[in-house]
Design a binder for these strands. Structure first.
Lengths: 225, 225
DNA sequence: CTTGATAAGTGTAAAAAATACACCTTCATG
DNA sequence: CATGAAGGTGTATTTTTTACACTTATCAAG
């Protein structure tokens, strides 16, 4: 069945940049393209938006279909619309930034795993379309928002230690932080809740476990995107 | 001539929130809709993206066609894609934030002026579609970016006095600022260039005129969108 | 069960940044 | 040439950020 319009229309897709921390590295989930264009190259998960779904639901659906992931934090990143970005024709892509702890990402195995892999943000393979640009923007955005949002927490499981949280800030922010000052900074956000539990982690004092307070807002200080 | 595709495609439009300062108020340019849906309501300028133009060029073209404006600062704001946002069918809109000094906006008179008007951001008329939401987001974004960007300068003509710049920050930020501290803050950005000129403005000391240094970056401190 | 190794957890002093605040300058007008 | 009005300037105080070192709880090995 054909769908006809009086004027030409672009195709609209979503592309999702899924970041997680693996082996203390910021990593992104990519799919190896089986067919042309860019056969053999790696691409962001994503696909066409369907008529009755919101952009965000479309992104979540594509992510589920292509990677099996369902439990991720998602926010809109930017819309890419260069006329020549896809050689097959005009394709406008609404890019999303997704974050999740590695634990939430095991469903990846559920799908066609051969074509799926994690890459360190520092060591990307040859990428299809303008996906390298999209990824670069996602990374810059994530890094910028670290300091005035609670995005970092989205890379951790529900409960976590102070040190784990600090590592997120250090890895994403690409700089080492002072332990005492970091704790002071986080406490000043007033978003931490003690769980009462501890985690024994080796031959030393066990660490207290925290969770993000349910009432925690995403933005603090200077609000913005 | 019909354009046919194997799958349904949404229409893609741009909508542009043009802010300026008028009578010491943050104001936005709206167009009165002549026909249904939302006949008689006010809407943001914008329209369909053409096959061979970038999203940004499309936004600039629509702005020119509908309002006569050509000299504005433009940045992408957000993409709105709720399936029901337009009763005529699926329309995805890439919203842009535009800023310009009132002086650059006289071309407004060039177009069908009867249907065009400025509204104070605080006193908006009944608006079509989800344009009120778009406007609210644009306003929040502008305000948030004041403190870590040079967006405020985009609301001023090429040369301006310190006091005029302060008024921009006060009006957009919705709070009064201390004169001496403000000057210290701006100087610390290192983006001001003295023109050597002054402006006589009444029975008092004339004000020095400045311009934004050509090398000035948009972002300072914490970079981000 | 004592000892040593390891990461967790804590406070204070110094430096930097942000804030509060008042008077002199320059010009136009009468 | 006196007056009124906005332009322009510096310093002291408070707040925030940074730098920095020792004690605590646990495990493993002797």
């Amino acid at each position: 069945m054909q769908h006809c319009y009086d004027y030409p229309r672009p195709a609209v897709t979503t592309d999702i940049v899924v970041f997680t921390l693996r082996n203390e590295r910021l990593s992104v989930l990519l799919i190896r393209r089986a067919r042309d264009p860019y056969a053999g190259y790696w691409a962001l998960p994503g696909g066409f938006v369907e008529p009755d779904e919101t952009l965000e639901r479309g992104a979540l659906r594509e992510l589920q279909e292509e990677t099996g992931l369902t439990q991720v934090y998602l926010e809109q990143l930017y819309t890419f619309g260069e006329p020549q970005r896809d050689p097959r024709g005009r394709v406008i892509s609404v890019a999303y930034l997704a974050l999740a702890p590695l634990e939430a990402l095991q469903p990846v195995a559920a799908s066609d795993a051969a074509a799926l892999d994690w890459f360190e943000a520092e060591h990307l393979p040859e990428m299809a379309f303008d996906h390298r640009d999209i990824l670069a923007l996602a990374r810059a955005r994530l890094r910028a928002k670290l300091n005035y949002s609670t995005l970092a927490f989205k890379l951790l499981p529900e409960t976590f230690t102070f040190h784990e949280l600090q590592r997120v800030y250090e890895i994403v922010g690409e700089q080492e932080l002072d332990k005492r000052n970091f704790r002071k900074f986080i406490r000043s956000l007033n978003v931490l809740q003690e769980t009462g539990e501890t985690r024994r982690n080796g031959a030393h004092k066990p660490a207290l476990l925290y969770r993000l307070a349910g009432s925690a807002v995403i933005y603090h200080d200077r609000q913005g995107t």
